[in-house]
Simulated scan of single mutants.
Amino acid sequence: MTHAIYAIAFSISLSGCYLVKRHAKCGFRTIRYGQLFKISYQKYRIWDYMLIALPPIILLALRYGIGGDYYNYERFYEQYVESGTSQFEPLAEVIMSFNNYVFGNYQSFLALVATVTFLLIVNWCVRLADSDSLPITIGIMYCFYFGNAMNTIFQILAAAIILYSFYYAQQRNIIKFMITVVIAALIHSSALIVLPLYFVILKNDKKENSRYSGKEILKIWGILMISIIFAYIFTKYGALYKFAYSGYIGKYSEGGMINVYLKLAVLLYIPELWFMSSLLKKSKKYELYYILVVLEMICYTMSISVAYAFRMAYYFSFAHAIIIPAIIENCISTKSKVVVKIYFIMVLLFWFIFTTYVCKYNGIYEYKSIIGL
């Protein structure tokens, strides 16, 4: 039953991606309030967004007792409502206070956070992805973030906000970048990990001929090599010198087979790095996403011996949703596009099935809901 529920929900969601292409040229409507407020929107796009986002939102909102931290968050929520204090950051407390004032129960809290999280994710995907590649972009985001959204609730919301900070970094708008990161950090302080990236991200040049040279491509490889060496040293000697959390989680201790993430990611890293040179020569905008993939590698490598280091990858994994469609689009022949697309789809399906049903990460199997499913 669980397999059918997830399959049907994701199929409905992906069908909305094809409507986005159909409605891409629909007219805009504008809402005004004097000279102070104006917002423009595309009528049919709103329904497309909802069709894409509603299935995961409903699944998360109606779940009962599943998700690794379901009961932990329930306890934290009730403690905060009763005492007014919690272990969470200030804006996370504001969300809980707002929910308690308006709705008054934990299940509504889950629905509220799920709604905001996936509307942010879907909006980001629609704005950045080409309409032809939107289904695979959405599929990648679900693969990496759906299960986690049932578990690390506030951190995934923070990650959904961080998505937008990199756009401002590429535009060299440090004020909006900082505001976005601070908002995310006020929900989950781990979001501060992205702050240094502002200073290594190149400005996004909109010119089509803005391309990389060979030396700039070596920069990415240099970051990769240095990162791997750093991660190796830290994971090998961290426990010996008692760095915080190092060695806390092993293969059979709390957290499970944490090295699985790195093993699975290799199936994506190999083709992504293989096509890196051609993508960077095509446009320098891909530099950011390859840097994020490198940072994800570090997190997964450190997760071999460092507790919960893999959770820092939440802020970087969305890069695959840009790189993979770009690889498919830039394959030379139609035949190769088909082969590469099938490969990535199979890897992503394997990733979701293996982590969900075999390793049982995030506790989303078997699905249980408040309506008895």
Rank of each mutant, 00 (worst) to 15 (best):
I12A: 00
K21R: 08
K25E: 15
C26M: 13
F28E: 15
Y44N: 10
D48G: 02
L54T: 11
I57S: 06
I66H: 00
N72T: 15
F76C: 11
F76K: 03
Y77E: 01
E78N: 13
Q79E: 15
E89W: 03
I95N: 02
G104N: 00
Y106I: 01
L110H: 00
A111C: 00
F118I: 02
L120C: 07
L120H: 04
L120D: 06
I121L: 05
W124G: 05
S133R: 07
I138S: 04
M141P: 07
F144T: 09
A149K: 00
A149W: 03
A149F: 07
M150H: 12
F154Y: 07
I161K: 02
K176A: 09
I179E: 09
A185S: 01
S189R: 01
P196M: 06
V200L: 08
N209Q: 13
N209Y: 15
R211W: 14
E216A: 08
I220S: 02
W221F: 11
W221A: 02
I229F: 09
Y245S: 06
G255S: 09
L262E: 11
K263F: 14
K263V: 15
A265Q: 12
L279I: 08
V294S: 04
M297D: 14
T301Q: 06
T301A: 04
T301G: 04
I304Q: 06
A309D: 09
A309T: 12
Y314D: 12
I332T: 15
K335V: 13
I353C: 10
F354W: 04
